[in-house]
Amino acid sequence: MALLKDDMAACNRLILDRMQSDVALIPQVAAHIVAAGGKRIRPLLTIAAARLCGYRGDRHVGLAACVEFIHTATLLHDDVVDESALRRGQASANAMFGNQASVLVGDFLFSRAFQVMVADGSLEVLRILSDASAIIAEGEVLQLMTQNDTATTEAQYLAVIEGKTAALFAAATEVGAVVAGEPADRQKALRDFGMSLGVAFQLVDDALDYSADQEALGKTVGDDFREGKITLPVLLAFARGSEEERAFWRRTLEDRDQGDADLARALALMTKHGALKDTIGRARSYADQAIALLEPFPDGAEKRALAAAADFVVERAR
């Protein structure tokens, strides 16, 4: 953030400018979620990738804003689907303004993203970001299909997180390489970097849902458990558990029959079977994979910053 503060400031100004509308409720809802902060890691990746590739223009700023608009739109929609009351430690937009306003303002932000993409003028950038938008939606629907199903495989789980989370990380870094005019192999290296980083990010998030405190997590701890989401910590604890323990998971996640003590028991079973530790370990492997993909790029502050971002994604679990 310190290295790219000027570009990020320009990106933030563009975000604030483009979320304005004569329809007063739109900037109100958009400002609520945008002002809630977040680390802006996705637009930061676009800017860092472009700078890593030696780009010195300003197209990357608009595309970074596009990436953040797509991300913010999905957050608004996700909170409605998940019936979430908190987002980044504050009341979620749907809790404040209602489901209808959240869905419609999410649609507005998606539309704004495409307006900025079209203004950029690159069909390749438009293809990358529109493909990512479709993949995100597919990932969310796939998660809906696997929810409450303890027969979900690790491969299916990975497909969910590659779609709903990692696809936008991959697109964010790839468009940075595209605006810099990098050859196809370097574009692919940065796309793969983003994909590995995104998977690591979601693995850590899924572990934190069972192990963080509410203030650190920015949402209610145990939301995934209450919603019956099948994440890697659940899959590992289920696979390693006794038949009696598996019956617990089926009752709580498939039947949604949960009592006050069940979240604590779920966490105890995960601890017993090393599920959280191994999920973080898996995230570390993906982060290391991401860092290795930076090897062909010249050494410098941007490369070190991207490697540090990969480390940060995992270290926030400590």
Rank of each mutant, 00 (worst) to 15 (best):
L45Y: 07
A134E: 10
L123S: 13
G228N: 07
A166W: 03
M145V: 06
K303Y: 09
S133G: 15
D206F: 02
R251D: 09
R246P: 09
K5C: 10
T165S: 02
G198W: 00
K277R: 14
Q90D: 05
A261M: 12
A200E: 00
V178R: 01
G228W: 03
K229Y: 05
Q214G: 01
Q289F: 13
I291Q: 14
A24F: 08
A189M: 11
I291T: 15
L45M: 15
K303L: 08
Q28N: 07
A307V: 04
E245M: 12
L4V: 11
E295V: 11
H77K: 14
V125S: 00
L197Y: 01
E182G: 08
V23N: 11
D311S: 06
D205I: 00
D6V: 05
L129I: 03
R88P: 01
N99S: 12
V141Y: 11
Q289K: 15
L14F: 06
D22C: 07
A31M: 07
R284T: 12
D7G: 07
L14K: 02
R13T: 12
Q100V: 14
D257V: 11
S84Y: 12
S92V: 02
D82A: 05
G98W: 05
D107P: 09
L269Y: 11
V81F: 12
K188M: 08
V314Q: 03
S242Y: 07
D192A: 13
I280Y: 05
F225A: 00
A85D: 12
A132V: 04
T46I: 09
S285L: 15
L123G: 06
A317F: 01
G281F: 12
D278N: 15
L306W: 04
V23W: 08
D6R: 09
L86A: 05
N94Q: 06
G139E: 00
D255A: 15
Q143C: 03
M145H: 13
G106H: 05
L276Y: 07
A170N: 06
Q115T: 13
L197V: 06
E245L: 14
G106D: 05
F193P: 04
A305G: 07
A189E: 03
A101I: 00
E295P: 09
A35G: 10
V118R: 14
A167Q: 11
E295K: 15
F297I: 12
T231Y: 00
D224M: 03
D185C: 11
A35R: 09
H32A: 07
M96E: 03
G222F: 03
R112P: 00
